Computed example of a mutant assay.
Amino acid sequence: MDKAAGKIELRKRLVSERLALPNRLELAERLQSVMRFWLIDRPDTIIGAYWPIKGEFDPLPALYRWQEDAVLGATLAQSSEPATQATEMPPLAHQSLASRSPRKIGLPVVDKVHKTLIFHAWYPGCPMEEDAYGIPKPKDTEIVVPTLLFVPCVGYAAGGYRLGYGGGFYDRTLATLQPAPLTVGLGYTHGFLPDFEPEAHDVALDAILNDNGVVWAGPATGQDR
């Protein structure tokens, strides 16, 4: 079996195993916590992510909390009430939180001409539509340019290398984004590939997080990025 065919089979196996994980909900909760702690000291205000498919980890709850924290932090700083009262917002205020937060979340929309990804702002309840691959995407929201990009991993390896779905969308996108965003892979522990051999065109991610914590952190993960 050649290398390309081997990767196809490896992807199929890993996706099948991921869908069959009996404790996927528990693992997702742990990775949500890892994400939230990892984001605490990040200076980014625009983060790109993805809509989860095929049993992928869902990063959006943690990112919405990250977005929410900016508003709640400002509310607490201006309020003389105890924190337990200051954080209680009426439903309408909660619904409009995304519009009041200085932090933005972007989800990818495929540019069919260049086969790259453009990121549009997402928030809970925003209008959505399916793209050509049947994946939900924001409809007619503003374009944002992330400085930090969370990337789904089918599999991952030492050194920050990622096994994706083989479409090359992220690689082409990262080659065009200026300035280049910090890239962070997300995946479950089962996706670690100890024998994975990167090819010449493979570009390492800046960091990888899984349900056990930080798997890989390159030098670019400091606050200078």
Rank of each mutant, 00 (worst) to 15 (best):
L177E: 10
K139C: 07
L19R: 05
G166S: 11
L10W: 09
V113M: 14
G191N: 10
A220Q: 09
W122C: 00
F150P: 02
L27D: 07
L10C: 08
L177G: 09
S101Q: 01
E199W: 02
L163S: 01
R30K: 07
K112L: 15
K54R: 10
R100P: 06
L92W: 11
C126A: 06
A121S: 03
D140H: 00
R100W: 13
A77I: 14
C153A: 08
W51S: 00
L163P: 00
P108Y: 09
V145D: 12
R11L: 06
H190A: 14
A5V: 14
I118D: 11
P194C: 11
E199I: 07
M1Y: 15
P102Y: 10
L10N: 07
T189L: 14
A74M: 12
V151W: 05
A28H: 11
L209M: 08
D58C: 00
L31M: 10
T75E: 12
G73M: 02
D131E: 03
L177I: 13
G159A: 11
H120I: 02
K137C: 11
A74I: 12
L182D: 08
E56D: 02
G106F: 02
V113E: 15
Q32Y: 07
D211S: 06
W51T: 01
L10R: 05
M128D: 04
Q223N: 14
Q78V: 14
S33Q: 06
A86K: 02
K54P: 15
R13Q: 11
G191R: 11
V144E: 06
F196T: 04
V34W: 12
G187K: 04
E142A: 09
V145C: 15
S96Y: 13
P43L: 06
A74Y: 15
A77E: 12
Y64F: 05
G168E: 09
L149W: 04
E129P: 06
D44M: 14
R103T: 00
A132V: 06
L107D: 01
P179I: 09
W122H: 00
W51H: 00
M128F: 04
D58Q: 00
V151R: 00
L149C: 07
D111M: 00
V144N: 04
P181S: 01
R30A: 12
R225W: 15
G218K: 01
I8T: 13
L76W: 07
G185V: 00
P82S: 12
R103L: 02
A83N: 14
S99A: 15
A200N: 09
S16P: 04
P138Q: 03
D131Y: 01
F119L: 03
E17D: 08
R11K: 05
L193E: 05
F119E: 03
L72F: 09
H94R: 15
D140L: 03
T116K: 02
A132M: 08
R24T: 09
A158H: 04
E88K: 15
L107R: 01
D195V: 11
W216T: 07
V214P: 08
E142L: 09
L182I: 11
A217P: 01
A121W: 02
D44Y: 10
D111F: 02
L72I: 10
L27E: 09
